[in-house]
Computed example of a mutant assay.
Amino acid sequence: MEQVPVKEIPLRDVILTLQTYGRAGLRGWPWLLLGALLLGGLQAWRVNQEAVFYEAATVFVVNKQQSGGNALGSVLGRFGLGGGAGDTGHSPKRVMAFATSRQLLHRLLLDTAELGGRHDLFINHLIEQSGFAEEWKLQELYGLDRLSTNQLDSLSRQERSLLKMVYAYLTLDPEKPIQKDISDETGMLTITARTRNEALSIYLSTALYHYLSDFYTEESTGQSLASVERLKARADSLLTEINRAEYQLANLADTQLSLTRQRDQVRRLQLQRQVNIATLAYGEVVRNLETAKFAMDGFTPFFQLVDAPFSPLRPAYPQPLKAGIRWGIIGALLAFLGLCAVFLYRNIMHSDD
């Protein structure tokens, strides 16, 4: 099959064409100015309406390495109990994934906090001090602007909807009330709270760190801790069995003046054998239990606070000028592209004529 030769366009023609379109766009400079003023002015006005925010950052580290995890897994595996969730390690990304989980934030929102000298649910403080009751028109939507109890099961349908709205605000809103960051160089983790109230930002940042450390530790060691508790229960059961057999053996010796009867001798041997077997089993379980406790400490996550926020915080004011300049340039560029498109359309229509 014969190939059709591709016609090459000289570089000079390309440059001349670009110059032609550039001059056509620049000739319409009033439209460029209008586009810059419209889009830049609109964005500057929008940014100027934004509230003042306060950012509070909490910096911490979590140990990555685990020592003794394999030992615990082998010890518990001998009893068919499993090694627990700690075998997966403590990845910083995995830790941060829990920071905005629904269960963790629900615990935080429904807990009591003292802000401004008043004790109330944290979600009520957040709604009140951020002005969301009026901004979100909560009374019109749900007929309430606060929660009455910290028990999730006791919340009404409207209160549950309000709780979901606040959770969505913390995790999805463009204001980014909760920001997470992991430093690739140092491995430090940062949780930044960004709200419209200084005390609210400080409390949200520090409380989220404490809730995260407790929640993640509970999740990481819960299964292993339950396994250790089962070993402990087994040890207690064996000890009770030993005490009972020893008591029966002593009682048999006290109640018989002479152990010459064969039946008494057999009973004595049976009890002594039961004590010996239970004692050996008890010693093995206790040894494994202590090993398991020691090994579990090796993969229990350790949170170390590096930096905590404190007042006064520097307010983050809106920057309408910066936004106006940036979007003004974008507006001028869009107007320029529009003029070039009009010029191209006219050339095509004239060439057809």
Rank of each mutant, 00 (worst) to 15 (best):
G80N: 10
R27K: 14
G116T: 03
R12V: 12
E8N: 12
P92E: 02
T100V: 12
G80S: 07
F98H: 12
G40I: 00
L39R: 01
G28P: 00
A51D: 14
L104R: 05
A57P: 11
A36D: 06
S148L: 06
V14I: 10
T100N: 12
V95D: 00
V14D: 13
G143P: 00
I127N: 05
R146F: 13
V61Y: 11
R78Q: 15
L33T: 05
D145T: 01
L126N: 04
G77L: 06
R102G: 06
T88G: 10
F53R: 12
F132A: 08
I123Y: 07
Y21E: 09
G25T: 02
A51T: 11
A56H: 10
L121R: 10
D145N: 14
V6W: 09
N124T: 03
W31S: 11
A113R: 04
N63R: 09
R146S: 15
R94I: 05
P30Q: 01
L109A: 06
Q43K: 12
L121P: 11
E114Q: 13
A36E: 10
Q66M: 09
V59L: 04
T58D: 04
E55T: 11
K7R: 15
N124P: 04
V4Q: 14
D87A: 15
E55Q: 15
G77T: 02
T100W: 03
P30A: 01
G68M: 02
H125R: 10
P30G: 01
S74Y: 13
G35C: 03
L141M: 07
L126E: 04
L110I: 02
D120Y: 06
